[in-house]
Write a protein that binds this DNA or RNA. Structure first.
Lengths: 231, 231
DNA sequence: CTGACTAAATTTGTTGACAGTTTACAATTC
DNA sequence: GAATTGTAAACTGTCAACAAATTTAGTCAG
């Protein structure tokens, strides 16, 4: 197996459609393409320097992913995630994180435990430093690791999709990551249940954690819904 | 065999790509396109009487759906679902059906209850008639209805995808629907918990039901696995 | 000024074509 | 005879172009 120059291998290991899909996804999640807005195929094609074929393929993938929807003869639109949708996603995610906890408690290794312990310690530090961005990133990695360690590929893929969908809603309702205060004690509880290898306890701890996140999200959402105008 | 491209021209209310996607999905799930096989874009295009554009869009959607995967410069291939994948999917589905049960027990109406009761009665009849095909169809509708009645759009979409994925594996391992004997008593138990509006009981009943299905699937899979593992 | 009707300009849905890559196969060499 | 090389066919990835549909702008009657 010859090693090829990195630039070439990147260009040849990925089709244009995949690259375009990632780019459109990035723009949607960053808010560059607003929720409800139409994806202009011509505009994107000229801007990205490709033809409309790959653009349409990417959009078709994003439709199946739940970030876009399509109207015949009118094009692709960024999905508008309603509050009901967000609640539904939170419920599903809570259920799946419960599964992750139940699965992981049975098989977690000491090395994996120490990884999670390190993350919780770092979150403690970030909390006392009032560094909310760092806390948010660590929090997300904590959850990602738990799902990763559960070693269920389908679970992993579904959780990723749900997180993206929630991100889309948070942007729409002008709630940023730092806005939702999360106490690190819940993480510590989860860690305890995993350390004692108790599947039922770990499952309920994680499910409750996500449900608590949903509750925080709902109250925060209610606070900002009075005056939707910012920026 | 005379090909009628008009089969797809029921559109004008649907894009060609959507119709093609459904057709390819049907062929994959029916085994007309074997697992691991490449999707021949030219062949399908001429056979369905369309160009390759919609074919590729459909395939890109099916990739995101988990039924296909793509290799650069070689095309789209039907995913090969391993036994590990099937187990993962069963676990996720059990977790989601638990959520469906918990949600539904809180809000189920008498009309919905009678729908489920009718289905269980019909399954009893099919069971005593040894009509396994009818039982299989009724069984599937029973589960579909429970998910529908839970009124969580994301949950329903995910469950649909998981069922399709399992169907793909069952085909690969030569297990047909009738091959997996399911006792109707489990359905009756589920119905009882729903009738008494007990979320926790309904959740565990449904989760156990799917886990029991996984166990039946594993034993049936072990029986046929002697010939099943082709490279 | 308003509202409807019409024409132009965009934009989508789809197709056919072209270049680069992979695969199949025959010819060549050892 | 087996391995290898070279060539042709098939196929994928991408693009440009065309037709149908939609949106927009403009005109005109009331």
């Amino acid at each position: 197996m010859n090693e090829q120059p990195e630039a070439l291998s990147v260009l040849r290991s990925q089709s244009l459609a995949s690259a375009v899909q990632e780019e459109i996804e990035r723009r949607i999640l960053s808010g560059a393409i607003a929720a409800g807005a139409r994806v202009n195929e011509n505009g994107l094609a000229t801007e990205l320097g490709v033809s409309r074929g790959p653009i349409r393929e990417a959009c078709r993938g994003l439709v199946e992913m739940g970030l876009l929807f399509t109207v015949v003869n009118r094009g692709f639109f960024v999905r508008e995630v309603t509050a009901k949708d967000a609640i539904d996603v939170y419920d599903v995610r809570a259920s799946l994180m419960r599964l992750a906890g139940e699965t992981l408690a049975d098989r977690i290794t000491d090395a994996q435990l120490s990884v999670l312990e390190t993350l919780v310690a770092e979150m403690d530090q970030a909390e006392s430093d009032c560094d909310f961005d760092a806390f948010y990133a660590l929090n997300r990695e904590f959850h990602d690791r738990i799902v990763d360690f559960a070693e269920n590929d389908r679970l992993r893929a579904l959780c990723d999709g749900l997180v993206k969908e929630l991100h889309l809603y948070r942007r729409r309702s002008l709630l940023q990551g730092g806005g939702l205060a999360v106490s690190n004690t819940e993480h510590r509880d989860i860690l305890d249940t995993l350390r004692s290898r108790d599947p039922a306890a770990a499952g309920t701890a994680l499910e409750r954690h996500i449900q608590a996140g949903k509750a925080r999200f709902l109250t925060a959402s209610a606070e900002t819904s009075d005056q939707g105008e910012a920026s």
